[in-house]
Design a protein around this nucleic acid. Structure first.
Lengths: 341, 341
DNA sequence: GCCCTGCTAGAAAGCGCTTTCTCAGTCTAG
DNA sequence: CTAGACTGAGAAAGCGCTTTCTAGCAGGGC
């Protein structure tokens, strides 16, 4: 048995102490504290007063054990520094908070290999899970899914039983490409996302479909990643590709790209157009304001909670939804120069 | 007693089941799972195999109750949408994660009145707390502190016993003001933070000290807030003040301000200089790149964890630190026009 | 050859709740 | 006036672990 066995000198007061103080049984205290007490008002009052006097508040651990649930849900994402995930988290946390649930975070810090372990761990600490695991192998994900339920998946297909919230990257990327094409661009670079990213694959599928429709337009893929740093480092490859426009995996990459391009004396959009994806909160404020495909991340977090809540209650969750990104044309894209230098 | 009483059909396997499966006692299972087992290797092996076969993993609730701790810490902040808090959280989460601790978030969504309750709640769910409560009344904070320990406070003084990580807003604001003054500005607006914000008070003290040194320079305070929206809405007051430069409570406010100013046809920094505070990750990328005072938020999160860890272990935490913001001069500030229009 | 020591593994208590079960007391009806 | 139906509150079991305590069994010293 744990530490001290007798003296209850320090530490939080227990239900037993309150019971003693009020001269009732622990059962009664429990009932009063949970509003399940039927009986003499005078007793309830005594319990309340005793509780107040001792500054009692029930142990969450004990409660969780007895009840079999924790009133908390987990959120795992590959990179908490990315505003897109932060915004999902913020929406999730606020909405879950309204229902008295808190969120426990699992930041896999880009380590794909640790992700399954991390997901299992945080899931077992909570009642449910919201999983953003863009790079996890599909087989692994499918294998993991049963052990993780109840959960909702963001931007992955869970193979059937698990509610999923998706962003239509396929259409989003196509809109962006069409926009660039309408502007007159015929050679466009795509700075791709991390290897094995599911959403990167969707974007590539969108690119293929665009190519089929516009065979005259070249879309050159160059290696990228998910961070501004990756965008910055992709600048040379982009320049080498001699394109008039570049589409980045996401806004972060686009921002790094713009910074690097400017460092090299190129101006955006005069010399080269740049578009991102996500519409993170600052995309509109950067120089130049970023053309991007807007994704309602906060709403993703909110809807994720609604589904989780249904699942937790044993109800049928609302149907899956595929969010359509909204093309957000700003000033980082423009018609190509007639005479490229 | 909870739900089912006999059948252990569904639900996670318990230590008792593993014990039965392996033909040993629960005590032995517990010991081998925790590496405290000394004895026949063959037995350990049998337990491990049984555990693997049942896909057993110990219940966190039960473990927490027995052990008296949760291996989790809480983080409460007034607005999770603010990149400054997100960055602190990210640093905290990553560092705590390395030590096997997870973080539970409490987003008070700007509701100052709910904050004490929220802080108590999330604190009681965890082993410790990192509290960012810039607006909480000092009395209330001091009263609350004992109940919240172990905790570390960000940007507040905890009245003695509680480790605190502070940013020197006083000096930061002075540097910014000196920078503006050096540029030649003699009428400067300060778009203040939320009412009752402790860090706003520090900034104001910095302003007073600057005024004493440069009595010829007017610093006009106009009401603001903490969000971009607040900055946007402060534009009219700023314009009415007829200043050549404006210092914002933070970067978010500065960004809103710049947006609003541009909407009204003013250009930054030609017509009016704007400076922020915090150096959020995107400050350097906005148009124009924002002059600001850089605060190492991630480091705040990291150091917060180190102190929490010491506290949890019953050790003496490292001493408090006051981070000095670094003046980051970028293009949103410039010398005033000789002939203001 | 016997007693004591040392070691391994199990029995059981306890962590702080919730809830079922139980029982004494009260009410109402016949 | 008593039997049956409630009612109100306590006893106790159980949630799934950890850890102390205990007992059984070898091994070694005299």
């Amino acid at each position: 048995m744990p530490r001290k066995r007798n003296g209850k000198s320090h530490g939080a007061p227990t239900i037993a102490q309150v019971a003693t103080e009020a001269g009732v049984s622990p059962a009664t205290v429990s009932r009063v504290m949970n509003g399940r007490f039927v009986g003499a008002d005078e007793i309830a009052e005594r319990v309340l007063q005793a509780a107040a006097r001792l500054d009692y508040s029930p142990s969450y651990s004990a409660r969780s054990l007895a009840l079999g649930h924790t009133q908390a849900v987990a959120f795992v994402a590959p990179d908490l520094r990315n505003p897109a995930f932060q915004t999902i988290l913020s929406g999730l946390s606020a909405t879950a908070g309204d229902d008295g649930y808190r969120v426990l975070i699992g930041d896999s810090a880009e380590s794909v290999s640790e992700e399954p372990l991390l997901a299992r761990e945080v899931r077992r600490r909570c009642d449910a899970l919201v999983l953003c695991a863009p790079r996890m192998d599909q087989e692994e994900l499918s294998g993991l899914a049963p052990a993780l339920q109840p959960m909702v998946l963001i931007n992955r297909s869970g193979g059937g039983a698990v509610p999923t919230l998706n962003v239509d990257y396929y259409s989003g990327i196509r809109s962006l490409l069409e926009h660039l094409h309408d502007l007159g661009h015929r050679r466009i670079a795509y700075v791709s996302g991390p290897a094995h990213s599911a959403s990167n694959e969707h974007r590539r599928a969108g690119i293929r479909s665009f190519r089929d429709r516009h065979p005259e337009t070249g879309v050159i893929e160059v290696a990228g990643g998910a961070s501004s740093q990756d965008g910055f480092e992709a600048v040379d490859s982009v320049l080498r590709a001699e394109v008039s426009a570049v589409l980045a995996f996401n806004d972060l990459v686009a921002i790094g790209l713009i910074g690097g391009l400017q460092d090299q004396g190129r101006s955006v959009p005069e010399d080269i157009s740049v578009a991102g994806f996500d519409d993170i909160p600052f995309a509109r404020y950067i120089a130049p304001p970023l053309t991007t495909a807007s994704v309602p991340h906060e709403e993703l977090g909110i809807q994720a909670w609604y589904r989780l809540r249904a699942l937790i209650k044993g109800q049928e969750p609302a149907h899956d939804v595929v969010f359509q990104p909204r093309l957000e044309v700003r000033s980082s894209t423009a018609a190509p120069q007639s005479s490229p230098r």
